[in-house]
């Protein structure tokens, strides 16, 4: 048993302090993102989810240099962006994506300006790039308490919003008839997304924050019909992918002779592969013809009239 385990897990894995911090923080980010992400996917707001990560992390880099707490900078920028996205009244998903894009462009422009206005470019760009790609093994343990507090706040907000959000996601008109303030709920949802995304962006990087928000939720929605089951599954899948990715990254130091694969790459690759496999299986099962009814080729369309 021990030899089997040591085949899978390189020595020193469980004893490593950075690994433990990464596992705790990454796991927490995965749970929050998975839960919030189910609604993001149902509502078709993947772009907003991703854009908020981009904008909040770039803004966070600015805040970092202004000397305020980076997490507050992330959150502030994320909430600002979320609010402006929901402020413009739109009635179609494609127009909503367009507004998301416009806000993203403007937000990143502002971020570029903030970065420019503060200190020297070399250190700021370094910070921006680090934040973009994230580096889980360098998370400082000091942000853990605040991060967990924000995560818990996001989860409880989801608990409170659950029913009206579900209703207005499935059918906005029906929800409006039942007295649900659809636009307000939409705004609150996006703000919670901004919280979750900012949280995971600062802890695990902007790429992973999108991957953890959309991937596990999309996989879960392919597997489960009921939203509550999907939420649970998404959290589980997210945590599994995160821990699996950390393990893979840690082990890869052994295989690649000290180079190692970045942990963000490992996690994303696991999520991506899982999504492809699940979607493929689901598509395959839907394609199955009924027993007894063999598909027969359709008679030639171009047969000439008699």
């Amino acid at each position: 048993m021990t030899t089997l385990l040591s085949l899978v897990v390189a020595p020193g894995f469980f004893a490593s302090e950075p690994v433990r911090t990464a596992a705790v923080i990454g796991g927490a980010a995965a749970i929050v993102s998975g839960v919030v992400g189910v609604f993001t996917v149902i509502r078709g707001q993947s772009f907003a989810g991703h854009a908020l990560a981009d904008v909040s992390s770039a803004g966070g880099a600015g805040a970092f240099l202004l000397g305020i707490n980076p997490l507050s900078g992330f959150l502030l920028m994320g909430v600002l962006a979320a609010t402006s996205m929901e402020l413009v009244r739109v009635d179609r998903p494609s127009e909503r994506d367009l507004v998301t894009g416009i806000v993203t462009g403007a937000g990143l422009g502002v971020a570029a300006l903030l970065l420019y206005l503060n200190v020297t470019t070399s250190s700021t760009t370094g910070a921006a790039v680090t934040i973009m790609f994230g580096s889980m093994f360098t998370i400082s343990a000091s942000i853990v308490p605040l991060a967990i507090a924000v995560g818990l706040a996001a989860l409880s907000a989801m608990g409170v919003l659950y029913r009206p959000l579900l209703l207005s996601s499935l059918d906005p008109n029906l929800a409006a008839v039942q007295g649900v303030p659809v636009r307000l709920i939409g705004l609150l949802h996006l703000i919670v997304v901004a919280l979750a995304v900012a949280l995971s962006a600062i802890t695990v990087g902007a790429i992973l924050s999108t991957a953890l928000l959309i991937g596990p939720a999309a996989i879960a929605l392919n597997l489960a019909k009921r939203p509550s089951v999907a939420i649970f599954l998404a959290a589980v899948i997210g945590v599994a992918a995160t821990w699996g990715g950390i393990l893979l990254a840690y082990d890869s130091y052994e295989w690649t002779g000290g180079h190692g694969w970045p942990v963000s790459f490992c996690i994303v690759a696991l999520i991506f592969a899982a999504y492809v496999v699940v979607a493929e299986i689901r598509l395959g099962s839907r394609r199955q013809p009924e027993p007894g009814l063999k598909p027969r080729p359709r008679e030639g369309r171009a047969t000439t009239a008699g």
Binding site: P289, E290, L293, K294, P295, R296, P297, R298, E299, G300, R301, A302, T303, T304, A305
Partner: peptide, 15 residues
């Protein structure tokens, strides 16, 4: 959509 059985026949020119 293709019929699973039977046929749909259009005059020359098809779609």
């Amino acid at each position: 959509v293709m019929p699973t059985s039977g046929s749909v026949t259009m005059e020359a020119g098809g779609r």
